[in-house]
Design a protein around this nucleic acid. Structure first.
Lengths: 341, 341
DNA sequence: ATACAAATTACAAACGTTTGCAAAGGAGAA
DNA sequence: TTCTCCTTTGCAAACGTTTGTAATTTGTAT
């Protein structure tokens, strides 16, 4: 079931391969009659261009890669979906690589992608040192970071303003009278987690509320850690009282709420909760959770557009405009988990 | 920043390209000294094989495609993640295409994938006629269907037994004394929805419970339709009473529960609920939802393994073993939304 | 030293395109 | 008719590999 090639068409029609190629691509001048003839023959013999051969010749694969820690998360799924929508409009396709949050896998995938000569890369790295991508970036292919951005200067990135996100959470709680606000933060290694905690501290400072270290718990973004850290905070509640808690990931928020429910306390009567990335706000079976949200679709769109522009600029031989770090606005989605204190 | 090629290495070392190629690939006989020399030079000059050229020559791209309606759904995300894990172990990468549940997009993507000569395809189609894939299948590339399987004979597929899934739901409810069981079903066009409804009917028949058509609502798998259909069912509850409801998708389950909550009824005291595909059973902030579940990870693994075997068999020139339709077992995950009637 | 087989290496074609350049074809003007 | 100029087409190289076959080197036995 091998498919037709240009040269077979050429032979069939008694013209040269270059003529067929030009007729098919439409870019170059070919007599209209010939073009029609070629097009009909292509139709008749079910000609399908071989993108591999074309890639080799043009050294452009019309392929981008997305490397991320966990595609099963709605957050990443939504971003990828939108990137795909945007770039597929220009004929690009997406190679997906799920690193399982593992730096070795990330490196392995980046190597595989490099040999495949993808035109561009979007990366939600687990290795903030940025060491794994260096070669890629040096090769000249556009790279855009999302979610977790290494602390290097020269790079493109699209994220939300994570400090701002936490400020909004604290602001919401403070506006309801809360001052003793616990936080379930993330690891100190990832820029995302660091920024979110910093935002919390800034917002507290702005309101002259001292940050009680006893109310700062460190989790790892997973359900279990939200659950366990909340249990811990609740156990010490006598000595370190608090009226609200802010968790910086979706799963930790769920875990924390479960811990609260199991302790017999009510939300928001006893404890107010602000979550992060709660994707089904308004769709929860019961209580809507107040949550800081990221505009995933916009993130995806901006990433796609940025990559397309970079690739176009490459073609134009313009020198790359300075690298840009897009900081999008998070937003607070009101639910039913914040009460007045 | 162009990277080194085999012929540059060859020139540098004063040997032929074929020798370098063979030394690098290790398959063929090369004097050990030469191999070392080549390997060192490759290292020194940062040689990276060009997979595109290799693909062209070997007419195998080491690439598979996954085409599905919505990657932002955890269900698909989890499957893709596992397929990726399995096949990347054998050097394959995954191209992802999100059709947005649109048949035209599906066709467009399949065309793009065909010109890219992907080695294999996994497809969660929205077009059960199977017409869009025909060419692909005729080309000889392995195709595996998931989720929604066309009613053709000659194809590979990995799904759960959807009838069995519904039987388990009904069985659970019946065991708790429920006989008037409403169902929020899906469209009549998709095999998945059809099978799930059929399973419901079978299970009812087995228990000599007549199926009341008034208790069968048709949704479209989305939150809103679960919500609206439940509202409708509740509005008619006086004339068509029921003590339980079974919804055949995750989002419809959430929507239905929201509608129940808004009507002031309690779950499970007033109405019992069995859902489908509830991914965070046990992680919900409050009430655990009893749900029929699909083993997504196993589905992904079986898909990956099946594709790898098919591709290996192709190489072996063995004639393809008959097509197989893997029917995996769904399972019931107990929550707190089913009470005795 | 010579011959022969085995081990190693080189040559060249092929995979299916694109594209610069040269060649051919045709039309109009001298 | 011949020359020029423009339009259309063909030739051939290139993209970076793999691989069958031929050529060379090496080792061993005579």
């Amino acid at each position: 079931m091998k498919s037709t090639t240009i040269s077979e068409l050429a032979k069939e029609l008694g013209v040269s391969v270059s003529t067929v190629s030009r007729a098919l691509n439409g870019k170059s001048v070919v007599k209209e009659d010939t073009r029609q003839m070629v097009l009909e023959a292509a139709e008749k013999y079910c000609y399908v261009p071989n993108e591999i051969a074309r890639s080799l010749k043009k050294s452009s694969t019309k392929t981008m890669a997305v490397v991320l820690p966990d595609i099963s998360e709605t957050f990443f799924g939504t971003i990828v979906k939108e990137i795909d929508r945007v770039v597929s409009g220009q004929g690009y396709m997406l190679i997906l690589a799920d690193t399982h949050e593992n730096a070795d896998n990330e490196k392995k995938y980046l190597d595989m992608l490099y040999t495949r000569r993808v035109d561009a890369l979007v990366l939600a790295t687990v290795d903030c040192s940025g060491s794994t991508v260096r070669r890629f970036m040096e090769s000249g292919a556009p790279v855009v970071f999302i979610d977790n951005v290494p602390d290097l200067q020269e790079l493109d990135a699209v994220t939300i303003d994570n400090r701002q996100a936490s400020r909004m959470a604290v602001e919401c709680l403070a506006a309801h009278g809360h001052r003793r606000i616990a936080v379930i933060a993330g690891s100190e290694k990832e820029t995302t987690g660091v920024d979110r905690l910093a935002g919390y501290e800034e917002a507290m400072a702005e309101r002259n509320i001292p940050v009680d270290r006893k109310l700062v718990a460190y989790g790892n973004y997973k359900w279990e850690s939200g659950y366990l850290q909340m249990k811990r905070l609740l156990a010490l509640r006598k000595e370190n009282p608090f009226s609200a808690v802010y968790a910086i990931s979706e799963k930790m928020t769920y875990g924390a709420m479960r811990a609260i429910a199991e302790s017999g306390l009510r939300v928001p009567e006893d404890i107010s909760v602000v979550g992060f990335d709660i994707h089904q706000v308004g769709m929860e079976p019961r209580q809507k959770i107040t949550s800081v949200r990221q505009p995933e679709v916009e993130i995806g769109r901006r990433v796609g557009e940025l990559l397309l522009r970079r690739l176009a600029d490459l073609g134009e031989k313009e020198d790359q405009a300075g690298h840009r770090r897009l900081l999008l606005d998070p937003f607070l989605e009101e639910g039913e988990t914040v009460g007045v204190f």
